[in-house]
């Protein structure tokens, strides 16, 4: 494998035109993929020193996060904790400190695992991907970014430069939970992020991000529809939970069965909504 370290965005894009080239950021997915023969890039284009892609900033009511921000950066950012609490919590639950120091936001989304833990919180907050190629920049919603198992809309040679999300304010509501087989260093069995933007007691806008359920992380449009525009109480939380279960097209794998996952979509959506709305301990699922 050849290797080139990009000193600028232009250099990175030019090098990536070579067929079989792959960007390497933190390397936490790609390096073992190469070592164990799962991926065989002919050229690694090292973007890890592109400082201009490592930032967290506010712009126009949105939080913008550079593709090279690490999970440790997310964890330690006050802005993330305030404007995107589910993303903060997903960083807390992400791997261990050694991996978090290298793992980047861009690498997590482009590895495109069904269980990519940063995806549900970003989806719930109306996440957008900012992409750049030799042909120029484009922006698209994360909800249409993931196409299938480990497949995204990114084109060969295209670089993810940043993601942005719609900020939550102090009166808005949110919650996150990752179901895992142990308390740290575990791949998600199911993870859910919920964000509710409130206007005078009414839920003006809702985002429900689902991870490790289907072949791709996705927004539960059916659950969101039960919340949007309503005063959310017991009945609405129940309806959203049931809708999330009906909508789930869950996968079977070594960690859980599809039936279990579908059931957990309902349980987690109910639990998170009740928690964030201050409703008493969750009712038992049927």
């Amino acid at each position: 494998m050849d290797y080139v370290r990009a000193a600028s965005l232009e250099e990175a894009l030019a090098a990536a035109l070579r067929p079989g080239a792959a960007f390497v950021a933190g390397g936490t997915n790609l390096v073992p993929d190469i070592l164990f023969g799962r991926k065989k890039p002919v050229l690694a284009v090292d973007i890890s020193r592109l400082r201009e892609l490592r930032f967290i900033e506010e712009r126009g009511g949105r939080l913008r996060i550079g593709a090279l921000a690490t999970v440790t950066d997310l964890l330690e950012s006050d802005r993330v904790r305030e404007a995107a609490p589910p993303l903060h919590e997903s960083a807390v639950e992400f791997a261990g400190p050694l991996v978090r120091n290298r793992a980047t936001v861009g690498g997590n989304l482009l590895d495109a695992s069904p269980a990519a833990d940063l995806a549900p919180p970003l989806l719930a907050q109306d996440g957008e991907a900012e992409l750049l190629s030799a042909e120029g920049p484009r922006t698209l919603p994360l909800a249409s970014f993931f196409l299938g198992y480990r497949k995204t809309t990114i084109r060969p040679g295209e670089l993810l430069t940043a993601v942005s999300l719609r900020s939550l304010g102090p009166n808005d509501r949110s919650a996150y939970q990752k179901l895992q087989l142990r308390r740290a260093m575990a791949i998600s069995v199911v993870s859910v992020a919920a964000a509710l933007w409130m206007e005078g007691g009414r839920c003006a806008e809702a985002g429900i991000g689902m991870g490790a359920v289907a072949p791709v992380p996705y927004r539960s449009g059916a659950a969101e529809a039960e919340l949007r525009g309503r005063v959310v109480g017991e009945a609405e939380a129940e309806a959203a939970a049931a809708a999330a279960r009906r909508e789930a097209r869950a996968i079977d794998d070594v960690r859980a069965s599809a039936r279990y996952r579908e059931r957990m979509c309902e349980v987690l959506v109910r639990r998170l909504l009740r928690r964030t709305l201050g409703l008493p301990s969750p009712a038992r699922a049927h």
Binding site: G27, T28, V31, P32, L35, A44, P97, N101
Partner: peptide
């Protein structure tokens, strides 16, 4: 602190 096995030597 990082896992040396996840970093390319060239990096």
């Amino acid at each position: 602190a990082v896992n040396a096995c996840l970093v390319l030597a060239a990096q």
